[in-house]
C-alpha cells in the first residue's frame, strides 16, 4: 500500500472541503489509515482554503511537509502557485482553469498572474501539469457547483481504486437533484485527464 499525500487548494465557497472529506472517506473505505485537515481563513467566503489529505499504512501528522505532496489539486489558478513548493519533484499538479481574483488584485496593486507565469512556477518541480477546463465542464453538465467533482474525477485517474469507489461516495453525499449532473461531471473529469495523458 503506497502512501499518498494530496493537497487540495482553492478559495472559500468552491467545495474544497467537501472534496477532501470525500477523499478521506474513500481512502478509509479502501483500507487505508487516513488523516485530513483544513486550513481556512476567518472569512466565510473568499479566503484561501487548503486541505491536506493523507492515505497510508499508518498516518501520524495530518500535515504534509513541503516537497512531499504527490498530487496538488488546485481549484483556482493562482492558488496553484501559492502551494507549488509543496509538490514533490515530478509530482502531479491538476489545475482547474477557474480564476477568483483576490481583493488585493482587484485594485490592480498586485496584478493577477497569467497562466503561463503560474505554470513557470510549477515547471522547475514537474512536467506533470494537467490544466482542466472545469468552467466549460460545469456548463456542459449544467452544474457549475460540480467543480469539486470534476477535480475528483481528474484525480481518480491517478489512483487505482476504480470509478465505483469514488461514485459510491458521491452518491452518498450529493443531493438527488444534483446527482446526475455530478456523475456526469465526474466522468468528464476522468475523460479530460485521459485525453491529456
Amino acid at each position: 500500500m503506497k502512501d499518498i499525500n494530496v493537497l487540495m487548494v482553492g478559495v472559500g465557497g468552491q467545495g474544497v472541503i467537501l472534496a477532501s472529506d470525500a477523499m478521506a472517506e474513500i481512502g478509509m473505505n479502501a483500507g487505508y489509515d487516513v488523516k485530513k485537515t483544513d486550513s481556512l481563513g476567518m472569512a466565510q467566503r473568499g479566503g484561501s482554503v487548503v486541505s491536506n489529505v493523507r492515505w497510508g499504512q499508518k498516518v501520524f501528522s495530518p500535515m504534509i511537509k513541503k516537497g512531499e505532496v504527490d498530487f496538488l489539486v488546485s481549484f483556482e489558478q493562482v492558488e496553484t502557485a501559492r502551494w507549488a513548493a509543496y509538490l514533490k519533484p515530478s509530482g502531479v499538479a491538476i489545475v482547474a482553469d477557474v480564476v477568483v481574483i483576490p481583493i488585493s488584485a482587484m485594485s490592480g496593486a498586485v496584478p493577477y498572474p497569467s497562466w503561463d507565469e503560474i505554470k513557470s512556477v510549477l515547471q522547475p518541480q514537474t512536467d506533470q501539469i494537467f490544466f482542466v477546463p472545469a468552467i466549460k465542464i460545469g456548463q456542459e453538465v449544467n452544474n457549475p457547483k460540480a467543480l469539486n467533482i470534476v477535480m475528483m474525477g481528474a484525480l481518480s485517474t491517478f489512483l487505482d481504486l476504480g470509478d465505483e469507489a469514488w461514485l459510491a461516495d458521491i452518491r452518498r453525499k450529493v443531493p438527488p437533484k444534483f446527482l446526475d449532473s455530478s456523475i456526469q461531471a465526474f466522468h468528464k473529469g476522468v475523460d479530460e485527464i485521459k485525453s491529456l495523458k
Binding site: G41, M42, V78, A81, E117, V121
Partner: peptide, 20 residues
C-alpha cells in the same frame, strides 16, 4: 540537498479574508 532549480519570481497576490 536536492538540486533545486531556480523558481521564477512571480508575485502572488495575497488572499486575505474579506466580507461577502
Amino acid at each position: 540537498r536536492s538540486n533545486t532549480t531556480e523558481v521564477p519570481a512571480v508575485q502572488i497576490p495575497p488572499r486575505r479574508p474579506q466580507l461577502c
